[in-house]
Every structure is written in C-alpha cells, then in structure tokens.
Design a protein around this nucleic acid. Structure first.
Length: 283
DNA sequence: CGGCAGGTTCAGC
DNA sequence: GCTGAACCTGCC
C-alpha cells in the first residue's frame, strides 16, 4: 500500500483500488490526447498499452482498475507519483490558476516509446476519431492477439513485413511512407540510445525520424519517455498562448519550458484541457 | 459540402 | 535558419 495526503493506492491480484479522486480523473486523463487506445465500456473504459489491457472506472471515492497485470497499470497510471504536489506547484503560477483547478485530475501516462512514435506520427495533421481508427486497424492487422480477445500494439518486428501500401490501406494517408520508414529506423538500439540521452539531445535524435517534427517529438518524449520538461505546441497551444512576441511554436515552447521546468508537460496538459474542454464551451 | 484536424516535409529565400 | 504551400482522409 502506498499513501500520500491525497490518495491511497491498494494493489491486489485482480487490480488496483484508488481512494481519492481529486488527482485521478479517469475521463480527463484518458481524454486529453495522450493515448488513442481506449474506448467506453459501460460505466468505465477499456484501456490498452503495448500488449496489456485493463478496465478502469471512476468510483464514488476514487477509481478502480481491473487487470491481470496490476504492476503494469500501476506504472502506466503513475500511481507512485504525487500529482497533488505537482498540482500545488503549478497552481502557484497565476496564469495557471484556472487551468490547473479544472485539470487537476489529469495524470501523465507512462507509455511505450515505440508505440508513442508510431501513434504520434499518425496523429500529425489528423483528427482524433480518425487517429483512433488507424491505430486500431494497425493493431488488428499486425498485432498479436491478447488473452482478453483484443489486440496488442505491434512490435517493430511485426511491422517490418508491412509495405507502404499496407499502411495506406489502413487509412494512414500520406503518413504511410513515414510509418514504413519509422519501422526501419526505430530499432531497439535507437530506443536505448534515446532513453540514455538528455532531453534536448533525445529530441534532436527523434527529429531525424521522417514524420517526426517538433510537436510529435515532444509528445513522444513526454508520454513515452517520461520527460516532463517538454511542452508540445499544437494548434490549441498556439491559439491559447500565442502573443505578438510568442509568435512561433518554437518561441512558445522555449518560453514555457523555461518557466515550468520539469512540470512543463503537466502544465501543457492543464492548458490543453482547459482550452479544449472549458474555455471552448464558455465562449 | 468545404473546412478542419493535437503538423511535417520540401522548396525557395 | 526561416517562411509558406501542399498534403491523405473522413469527421464536423
């Protein structure tokens, strides 16, 4: 059992129970664009990562995760981390007062780096329903069957047999050749070098992959490599934060990573959530 | 039905 | 280095 002032987490053989829902909002955590592999199921969600699956739902006093692999999802949902503390630190920034309050239940998911590279190449200049569809079809096409009857995300080896035309047939559009190339570029060696590099150098390395630009690289670093010092700048960020001085994505990124440091990624998620779910509906 | 979607590439300065 | 046009596809 693990405890902090805001949350009590208990692991058992069938899953994980969380007491304290303030810093674990299931819908917000899954819905803020970090993962595309979840679907509604009754009063909760089925969530997949790599070759594992769980069912997660919000409960009266917290959340419940049912899974064969509690340790995996304990890490996946970062239940060893004190998001109450992170929230407190970010809330101290005046400009984050409203966004942090609205998004305090968001947690950054610890996901698989290879899965993140492929998924976020697909995400570029694309919409979420379509991204989810492409990822789902890719898993059905190339991933292994899992014990629960679903599909695992394909490994690099499982993607190698696919042709550019195969990716096109999955609906990937012009990203087909990027995916084909990425499966050849992103070897285990590439990934282990990536993990060993400081964030700035890891970012440069990711930018050598075709189809990976600054925004996608930051998403991979943040969601797949635990680099909290990244601040992905997308259309929402540009719209919410762009000013006369901060008039390019690179300037916005540099400004806010300098300001929020290792909590930049979480701050970005708070702002993204607020811009898309709160501000958009109140205007 | 045309614009848009959690951008990137490529060509031209 | 920086800027802008072109880009698959299917939701809204």
């Amino acid at each position: 059992m693990w405890y902090n002032p805001f949350m009590i987490v208990t692991k058992d053989e069938n899953g994980i129970s969380v007491v304290g829902r303030e810093f674990f909002d299931v819908a917000d955590t899954l819905g803020c664009g970090q993962t595309f592999r979840f679907r509604s199921d009754g009063d909760g969600y089925v969530v997949r990562t790599a070759d594992a699956a769980c069912r997660v739902r919000q409960t009266a006093d917290g959340a419940r995760i049912d899974t064969d692999d509690p340790d995996r999802f304990y890490r996946y949902f970062a239940l060893d981390e004190d998001y109450g503390e992170y929230y407190g630190r970010l809330r101290a920034f005046p400009e984050l007062e409203k966004a942090s309050e609205a998004g305090k239940g968001i947690r950054l998911l610890r996901q698989d780096p290879f899965e993140m590279i492929i998924s976020f190449i697909i995400s570029a200049n694309n919409n979420i329903p379509r991204i989810k569809g492409i990822v789902e079809r890719l898993c059905e096409r190339a991933g292994r069957r899992t014990a629960d009857g679903g599909y695992a995300f394909p490994t690099r080896e499982e993607l190698l047999p696919l042709s550019v035309t195969d990716y096109s047939a999955l609906g990937a559009g012009y990203r087909d050749s990027y995916l084909y190339e990425a499966a050849r570029t992103v070897t285990d060696g590439f990934l282990s070098e990536l993990a060993a590099l400081p964030t700035a150098e890891a970012r440069k390395k990711l930018l050598t992959v075709k189809g990976v630009g600054p925004k996608v690289a930051d998403c991979i670093l943040l969601f797949g490599l635990g680099r909290g010092d990244c601040f992905p700048v997308d259309t929402w960020m540009k719209q919410a934060l762009g000013t006369q001085e901060l008039d390019t994505p690179a300037k916005i990124c540099a400004h806010f990573t300098a300001r929020y440091g290792t909590l930049s990624g979480l701050a970005q998620q708070y702002i993204f959530h607020y811009a898309r779910n709160v501000e958009a509906h109140t205007r």
